[in-house]
């Protein structure tokens, strides 16, 4: 039971933070773009970079989940 639950919990809990983070990031970027559209290109590039960084936190959780799923945690099996 715990073998099935733990990967789910790992990615599920781990995705909350990055999700909120990416939301805030895009919100800020879109507001900035709305205020001064002439630098929209630059803002967009930096937004994508920021999203990649925030997303990689979710990816860490995903890696942990995948490890638990396919490799198994030591002591669980």
């Amino acid at each position: 039971m715990i073998e099935i639950l733990s990967p789910g919990l790992a990615i599920g809990l781990g995705a909350i933070g990055p999700g909120i983070g990416i939301g805030l990031l895009v919100m800020g970027a879109l507001q900035a773009m709305g205020r001064n559209p002439e630098v929209a290109g630059e803002i967009r590039t930096n937004m994508i970079l920021g999203i990649v960084f925030a997303e990689s936190i979710a990816i860490y959780a995903l890696v942990v989940a995948l490890l638990l799923l396919f490799v198994g945690a030591p002591g669980l099996q």
Partner: peptide, 16 residues
């Protein structure tokens, strides 16, 4: 840790 696992995680997860 962050450099290596960011790269590894993204590509590994993408492959899966």
């Amino acid at each position: 840790i962050s450099l290596s696992f960011r790269l590894f995680g993204n590509i590994f997860a993408g492959q899966v």
